[in-house]
Design a protein around this nucleic acid. Structure first.
Lengths: 353, 353
DNA sequence: TACCCTATAGAAAGCGCTTGCTACGGCCGT
DNA sequence: ACGGCCGTAGCAAGCGCTTTCTATAGGGTA
């Protein structure tokens, strides 16, 4: 049998109530008693029964972080930063702050997103952080709103990180939204300024906010330059992975041999795009410029170094973590927009001729 | 107030016991009754109270996956595969299999590793998967052994994935160990076969099993070729990140200008190494060959494509997930070695001259 | 010296669920 | 036709903790 609170109480010659209070540190306990209890805890190697504690206290120390793809550093960086902010501190042995920050991988599937939310609701999670772009399907948005409202009603803090505010729901503590539109616009403006006019765009999955916003920024820049034919042939959608970038770029090159630049939905896709360009015997950036988005750590090491848009993923994740913990005050209106910075590097240059 | 089992029972005009049994599906319930209960659950939008359930049943549906660095795809791929295997199935609505697979980021810190284990023990986790190399500090190993034994005693399945079996502890369901030694050996043999004799090695942190095993493989190959001067000057240790690869390579190049190849502890480090080589005005592979380890997805897109050692991360993670769930039988002796395959690509070539 | 207030500890009532055991029809076997 | 068994459902006893309320010393005050 495992050691229980009662065992510790017996050994310390106090009541279970006192042990509980020592462990939670939320009630005055004489120093001598505390010490006795702590010693008993140590000697018996006692570990609190989480479920029992959560049941009695009607709260748990679980914090869920939902990500679309755990194998993608984009999410890994945010999740890691958030997790550090949540679980790291409170060096002083016991005491309240001991939260269990866990990341859940939805794989981009709306069902799994909902499933995880239910599971976390079941565990009476203290907080939930949703990262990355959202699906724009109305049914799913409604389901999410409902779920999040229920979570919030049960006392769970809900924080969005890198995801636009949910329309219907005021259940959310805070939304940290990346300026995908602005970043996308500035990236394309950079290309236009270099002299490009035929720019291909390898977009992400069509139904995601991130995809749409980046694409909108791109088109805004195009429109401002008087370019209008961007709608159909120069845009290809696909998942956020290298294979998609590779295939889409091949397709783009086939459709429009006069292309001088390719903008990818993110850095990973851009890597695939680069591979495709090279496999066609074209040089980067002399023949074709390529650009990405996110500025993941490997982008600076690409050859040539990838022009991209930097998102402060680490900072954003850390802030989301603090928001979830209640350590930081929410931004005014609960919404903050996080700036995206253009990183012009070697993969973009003026078009040939 | 939230909806409880009793509310559902009242609405379905049955006893709470019956509702519980319907939900758990582990006791015969008449079809008509089941249907009535299920309808009530739906109508009331009931969500099980996890802590209460775990307390009463003395088990929980939490499965923890510990990783050293969540921002590193090496771990992300394994964790994602394991998580899919654990949480994904059981499409039929309710029923038992609904586990909550969560990943915990230790950041490579032994304290956090232990802390997470305690937290999971507290939650009475159903299983724990430890991924990646272990720290070789005796004190930490002892602490881990003790902790894992206690977890196992409490019924938690413990699985190691990409980590060598723990010496003292038989508490572990299964260990899936990568053949880091063999992979490291074959990689260096490849370089030797190409004609290299002065090979630099950028190793990982000194106190990790992964680091040591890969390095041992390297030295075994060297020794077999009659090369012995590898000990000191040609090996540099550092963390598993690009910056480390960059700095270490610069250092290596400075120490031994006659170097013709650099082997990195993993692909990420190799990327940094490549950057350093290029920044020195040297060409890959004409002047210097570079090789990595792991064969992460981006490695094939490096320029030139990176020679490396492929580890079946996805398969290993999935298998670990199944082992944790008890869906797959453990390998004989509880230990399986997972083969590492040499991927000779364009970043390695015969030395100049 | 008597009284009240503060500081500290204990008693006990749950928290919402699971499950061993009991209860109760109807069907079978002889 | 009757006893027993099978198939279902309910009762009630916890699971191990938190927390409200109550009890008991001291110590200060008048």
């Amino acid at each position: 049998m495992t050691v229980t609170l009662a065992d510790v109480a017996a050994r310390a010659r106090v009541s279970p109530a006192t042990v509980s209070r020592v462990l939670n540190g939320n009630y005055p306990v004489a120093a001598s008693t505390r010490e006795r209890v702590l010693r008993a805890v140590d000697e018996l190697d006692y570990v609190l029964n989480g479920p029992a504690s959560s049941l009695a206290a009607a709260t748990s120390d679980l914090v869920g972080i939902l990500v679309n793809d755990i194998a993608d550093p984009f999410f890994g960086i945010m999740a890691g930063a958030a997790q550090t902010e949540i679980g790291g501190q409170e060096g002083s042995g016991r005491a309240g702050g001991e939260k269990l920050a866990v990341v859940c991988n939805t794989g981009g599937s709306p069902e799994r997103e909902l499933t995880y939310l239910t599971l976390l609701q079941r565990q009476r999670a203290a907080a939930v952080i949703l990262t990355g772009g959202a699906l724009e399907d109305p049914a799913h948005i409604a389901a999410m709103s409902a779920k999040l409202t229920k979570l919030a009603d049960a006392g769970t803090h809900v924080v969005l990180c890198g995801r636009p505010p949910l329309p219907g729901s005021s259940a959310v503590v805070a939304s940290l939204a990346f300026d995908n539109r602005g970043g996308g616009r500035r990236l394309t403006e950079h290309l236009l300024a270099l002299g490009h006019r035929r720019i291909g765009y390898v977009a992400g999955p069509a139904e995601r906010t991130t995809t749409r916003h980046r694409l909108e920024g791109h088109r805004t820049a195009l429109a401002a330059a008087g370019l209008t034919d961007d709608q159909g042939p120069l845009t290809v959608h696909g998942p956020y992975d290298r294979r998609s970038g590779y295939k889409a770029t091949l397709e783009l090159l086939r459709r429009s041999p006069d292309l001088t630049a390719v903008v990818a939905a993110n850095d990973t896709v851009a890597l695939g795009a680069c591979a495709a360009v090279r496999d066609q015997g074209l040089r980067i950036p002399q023949d074709i410029s390529v650009a990405g988005f996110d500025d993941l750590p490997f982008s600076v090491d690409a050859v040539p170094a990838l022009t991209t848009v930097r998102l402060p993923l680490h900072e954003a994740g850390a802030r989301a973590g603090r928001l979830a913990m209640g350590t930081e005050a929410p931004p005014p209106g609960g919404i903050a927009t996080i700036a995206a910075e253009l990183m012009a590097r070697a993969s973009t240059a003026p078009p040939r001729g």
